[in-house]
Amino acid sequence: MSFVIELGAISLFALRSLYWAFSPPFFFRETLRQMARVGERCLLPVIGVVAPFGMVITLHGLQIVHIFGVERMLSSILVISLLRELSPGLCGIMMAAQAGSTAAAELGTMRVKEEVDALSVMGINPFQYLIAPRLIALTLMCPLVNAIACSSGIVSGYITAVVFGGVNRGAFLSNLYSFVGVIDIWSGIIKTLVFGFVIGVVSCYYGYYVRGGAEGVGKAANDAVVRSIITFLGMNYFLTSALLALSR
């Protein structure tokens, strides 16, 4: 359980990154570039996972609603489960696998090739130039990607239910939001903001402190993915508890 001890070091690293992220000079261009890269790397894979999940929920849901004869509930079930839990979770996992591992591998490679040291020698703070843009990019892009992915899940559910499942189109559409509260929208945004931040911090930490040459970089990328997933799923439990308790 050395990871528990490491969590302390990661928290300090997070504070340090935040401190530097909010002190000038700001690298806006670099931050925008990182955001574009994160979007480019993650959008399709996240949609690729959430959309089939929307289909699967709808197919399962169809059986249940037929049994209980509550066909109009189908779209609410779909939207609620995507919005509250599935879309943020899947989005976090895929973004960790795609963008988190990339960030860790890039920082690790730069460390191994002594480029990080070279930056410091040139008077550029690696926390400001390398870590802050990646951290901000992941934190901000995660909710955005999640919103798009969630919509894609709903669309694929709609297609499955209405086009292939023979569900009444009006019943599906009019009940989409009947159980959705403002808190559910907010919970998706808050969760993915936290997830994105966790992925950013953990990935940058493992990349920045990489050890052991080229193999070390590969290990850092893998550690980054696995441990950021563990960390944000752990937080997810507490967030879910809090948000569900709040919503009633």
Binding site: P45, G48, V49, M94, A97, Q98, S101
Partner: peptide, 8 residues
């Protein structure tokens, strides 16, 4: 990366 995505 392709491996992870296609597997998922």
């Amino acid at each position: 990366n392709r491996a992870v995505v296609s597997v998922c």
